[in-house]
């Protein structure tokens, strides 16, 4: 094992431990104060049934959903940044958030949510897929080889279109629907159930493996498609696979937790500042770091003003921005 490789595995191990620790912390603390004994009792299946319900059915799935969504967003962000060779790329850049939000608002506006708790996530997921299909369709129609600049523009244009759709639906629906839509668009992990976690993991974990298998191709794509091609990459195949997989992960995340910003943009940068830009390290570490970050952010969102829950976007911005600036300063010293 080379020293660099050794360091990489140390970092993976450390962050892996951090994920477990953060999940345990998120299970230990919540908006209702429980003692360690009560939480342990609940986990071992002996304690008070209410405590068991809170710990096993509310806190644990919620923390695990944060792992899946946070990790997935960071992974998708790192991938899109490499493919688009744009440090400002984030998972929603290809119009995904717009499509998902439009579908969600439409579902709320038409009163379709009454059919069941699965309707809203499913609609958001479908909306995200429609947006992706539109963006890819527009980009391919313009340039058959899927030029990333065209792709970015198509993303912006399709996103703007969906913003229009949202505005139209909101203008035509009643005030309560508007309020529900606004709350949803701010993003929340409150809908976490074991079923959601399972669905999320089925999307995110295989997707993560596919992307990690493409790590070397992504290294090359990040320095240019022509160079990547000269260094043995099937550029079109890698581009389509990686964009498709990253978009799917983002779409699944949007369906389960709404639009959560910041994680997908900043976590990959923070990891790059610490371990460099090689995707073999960047992708797994971004997943773990994104997971830890979102688990802790959600914990703060639940606990800070309990029983009132602050929107998670507030926490990611208030905690994430200073943390990132600190890291940026340290890396330039």
């Amino acid at each position: 094992m080379s020293p660099a490789g050794g360091r990489q595995w140390t970092a993976v191990l450390l962050l892996g431990v951090a994920v477990v620790a953060s999940v345990l912390t998120a299970v230990r603390f919540g908006s209702v104060p429980l003692s360690s004994a009560q939480v342990l009792g609940a986990l071992s299946g002996t304690g008070d049934p209410i405590h068991r319900e809170i710990v096993v059915q509310l806190r644990l799935p919620r923390a695990l959903l944060a792992v899946v969504v946070g990790g997935g967003l960071a992974l998708a962000g790192a991938t899109l940044q490499a493919l688009l060779r744009n440090p400002l790329a984030e998972p929603y850049i290809l119009g995904i958030s717009g499509g998902a939000a439009a579908a969600a608002v439409l579902t709320l506006g038409l009163g379709l949510v009454a059919a069941g708790s699965w309707v809203l996530p499913a609609a958001a997921f479908v909306g995200a897929l429609v947006a992706i299909a539109l963006v890819f369709g527009v980009a391919t129609a313009v340039d058959h080889s899927l030029d990333v600049r065209v792709l970015l523009l198509a993303g912006v244009v399709v996103g703007t279109f969906f913003t229009g759709v949202i505005a139209l639906v909101l203008a035509l629906s009643d005030a309560p629907a508007v309020r529900g839509a606004m709350l949803w668009m701010m993003g929340s992990l409150g809908g976490a159930q074991w079923r959601t976690v399972l669905v999320g993991a089925t999307y995110t974990l295989p997707a993560g493996l596919v992307l990690i298998a493409l790590a070397r191709s992504l290294d090359l794509m990040a320095i240019g498609e022509e160079t990547a091609s000269f260094l043995g990459t099937d550029v079109e195949r890698v581009k389509r696979t990686a964009l498709g997989v990253a978009s799917l992960v983002t779409a699944a995340g949007v369906g389960m937790a709404g639009v959560i910003g910041f994680v997908g943009l900043i976590v990959p940068h923070a990891v790059r500042l610490s371990v460099g830009s090689a995707h073999r390290k960047l992708l797994p570490l971004s997943f773990l770091a994104g997971a830890v970050f979102l688990v802790l952010a959600d914990l703060i969102a639940r606990v800070a003003l309990a029983p009132t829950e602050i929107p998670i976007g507030v926490v990611t911005a208030f905690v994430g921005v200073p943390l990132f600036l600190l890291l940026l300063r340290r890396s330039h010293q």
Partner: peptide
């Protein structure tokens, strides 16, 4: 908490 997004933990 919020009447539209109550804390489920507290409700339980």
């Amino acid at each position: 908490g919020d009447g539209l997004r109550p804390s489920l933990e507290h409700l339980l």
